[in-house]
């Protein structure tokens, strides 16, 4: 008998108290928790996302679509970044000419990726209530490792369409067959005396750019 059969056999013998007529589907689960913790306008949702991102030490910037290239150039210049890895879905005019744009190349050894200054991505969805951005390897997000190894991550969120209120709403939008990374602030640890320290292995600086046509003025 295989170990698979042995373990499954043990499970079936362990569950003799479960009535035969009970199926997985009719085993009751009350779902009276909330789909969102408040009703919000687009503007309120955007504000809450900004507030919660900042609370976990992400650097938050807001701009209208027309101001995005200038803002990105400014953020890169402030860090003295020269090389930026950007997946193919990032429009060419988002990056200034003097920056070396590096492609998201699967054959690039991790060490070379480590030598790059920054990474620029979009996102799949952002969650206002938790201050979370979710990357799902879409064309403007790239492979999981590019938003991990460089020390500086700029992530562009399009408001209002990419922002949801809550975790349940985010999961409903996402496709589990795609690899995902949920990011809430820069990497952190509480391992020393349960005091939170930001910045361990993931990018130590996370900058989130909230792009909203409502900010066009």
């Amino acid at each position: 008998m295989s170990s698979r059969d042995i373990v499954l056999g043990r499970i079936r013998r362990a569950l003799t108290d479960v009535p035969r007529e009970e199926t997985p589907e009719n085993s009751p689960v009350p779902r009276d928790y909330w789909d969102t913790h408040a009703r919000r306008s687009d503007a309120q949702r955007l504000d809450l996302l900004a507030e919660n991102l900042a609370d976990y030490r992400a650097l938050v910037h807001r701009c209208p679509p027309s101001g995005l290239p200038a803002l990105i150039a400014e953020l890169l210049a402030a860090r003295g970044a020269r090389s930026v890895v950007a997946p193919p879905g990032i429009p060419a005019d988002w990056l200034p000419d003097e920056i070396e744009r590096v492609a998201d190349d699967p054959s690039m050894p991790p060490r070379e990726l480590d030598a790059l200054d920054s990474v620029l991505t979009g996102c799949a969805v952002a969650v206002a209530e938790t201050g979370t951005i979710v990357l799902d390897a879409g064309a403007d997000q790239g492979r999981r490792r590019i938003s991990l190894v460089p020390d500086h991550h700029i992530c562009v969120v399009r408001a209002p369409e990419q922002i949801v209120d809550s975790v349940p709403q985010a999961l409903a939008r996402l496709d589990p067959s795609r690899p995902q990374t949920w990011i809430s602030g820069p990497s952190a640890t509480s391992d020393i005396e349960l005091d939170r320290v930001e910045g361990v292995h993931g990018p130590r600086t996370l900058e989130v750019v909230l792009v909203s046509a409502a900010d066009e003025g």
């Binding site: 201050g131 975790v167 809430s184």
Partner: peptide, 27 residues
């Protein structure tokens, strides 16, 4: 929703990874 708040007392932990089997040229 319940795990991060119960565990590290955060609204959400900094990173959550999900993967399904293998993905070509990613991971």
């Amino acid at each position: 929703q319940t795990l991060p708040r119960s565990s590290t007392a955060e609204r959400m932990n900094p990173y959550t990874s999900t993967w399904t089997g293998t993905t070509d040229e990613d991971g």
